[in-house]
Computed example of a mutant assay.
Amino acid sequence: MDHVLGILKVRVKRGTNLVVRDALSSDPYVTVSQGNLKVKTRVVKKDCNPVWNDELTLSVTDKNLPLLVTVYDKDTFTADDKMGEAEIDIRPYLECIEMCLENLPSPTTIKRIQPGKDNCYAEESSIVWLDGKIVQDMILRLRNVPTGEVELQLEWIDLPGRN
């Protein structure tokens, strides 16, 4: 197994204005992958504005690999339909983790990331010191579909014995 740098907790909060893939609605779920690791949320039936609030965890072995977030429509008899995807560069977040910040007032914004052509952010995303941990909330615009956004939160979990 590759050297694990730490655990990334990804809270998949909700989807907004997701595309319809079935007759009237969709049964969406989200996968989050990095390299060959993939985790997924539960399916929310018949809802193009689903609320998951699912907490997923990934072992991070390479900070240069982006997270790929993909939304699918669950189908029973055919392959699941893709409802869009987004990519997250986790390096800015991990750079804040590596600062080894402590005892800041809560909340303290450490870094702001603006939406642009080179990322999938729908609006400004802030990396924040909050109650003794560093979190990043974001709303991602899905690519390859006319509409759809997914709201996520990242949180780093250090492995015992790592500094």
Rank of each mutant, 00 (worst) to 15 (best):
S25A: 14
N119P: 04
R21P: 00
W156N: 01
G15P: 02
V30Y: 07
L65T: 00
G132A: 07
T70N: 07
L68N: 11
C48Q: 13
E95K: 15
I127F: 01
I134M: 03
D89F: 03
R141S: 13
W156L: 01
A122R: 11
T41F: 02
N103A: 13
N17H: 13
R141C: 09
R143I: 02
P146W: 11
A122L: 12
A86E: 05
L154E: 00
N17V: 15
L68E: 11
T57L: 08
V12F: 05
E85D: 06
T57C: 02
L140Q: 11
H3F: 02
W129M: 15
R11G: 04
I90D: 01
E87Q: 10
N119E: 11
I110A: 09
D158Q: 14
R42Y: 08
P107I: 09
Q153H: 01
R42I: 10
T61Y: 13
S33D: 10
E123D: 04
K111S: 04
V69K: 04
D73K: 02
R21Q: 14
D73V: 07
V44S: 03
Y121F: 15
V39K: 10
G148V: 12
V71G: 05
D118A: 07
K117R: 07
G161F: 05
Y121N: 08
D131S: 12
M1E: 14
Y93L: 00
S33P: 04
K117Y: 11
K40Y: 01
A122D: 12
W52Y: 10
K46F: 14
Q153Y: 00
D131F: 07
E123M: 10
S106Q: 02
V135W: 01
N17M: 03
L101M: 14
L154D: 00
C96P: 01
L159K: 07
V150F: 02
N49W: 06
L5T: 08
N53F: 09
L94T: 14
G6Y: 11
V128S: 13
N49T: 06
P107V: 05
I113Y: 00
W129D: 13
A79D: 15
P92D: 08
I88T: 05
P50W: 02
D75M: 15
L154M: 01
D118M: 05
I88A: 09
